[in-house]
Amino acid sequence: MRYIAYLAALLGGAALSLEGAIYGELGKTIGKLETSFYNFFVGSIILAVLWLFFGKGRLSYTLEAPKWKLLGGVLGVVYLTTIVISVPFVGVGITMVAVIIGQLAMSIIIEHYGWLGSQVAKINKEKILAVISMIIALVLVY
């Protein structure tokens, strides 16, 4: 079961790369913010259909949940918007390195303290080595 989760995350990242490359082209025609809007708007429609047929959970939990648990969508928009603003100023390379370092540092902190409802998982030397390997890989790519 655990392998499937790793595979899902790997495929998710690959999908993100493909998506980025294709949306780069779309953005040239309709604009960058408009491209994000297209993604979220049509994505909502696709998911509504998926939910109608395959939804097994409880969407009504939305109304009972503490409000901070509803922030996922907004955070996604903040992420997209900062990238759109930053790329023309500092270039794709530095933007991606900065985003990824922010993402990794924050992941470690969130999990170490069990913030945002995640399970506590302490930092250990393997995790630090993983992050160091990632930073070396990033520097080599860009």
């Binding site: 996604g76 530095i94 985003v99 922010g102 540092a105 924050m106 945002l116 995640s118």
Partner: peptide, 22 residues
Amino acid sequence: MILSTLIGGLTLSAQSAINGTF
């Protein structure tokens, strides 16, 4: 700019944590 992009990265991991909990 780099600082704000760094914050963009923070929001992405916060998003995955919040969504996982939800």
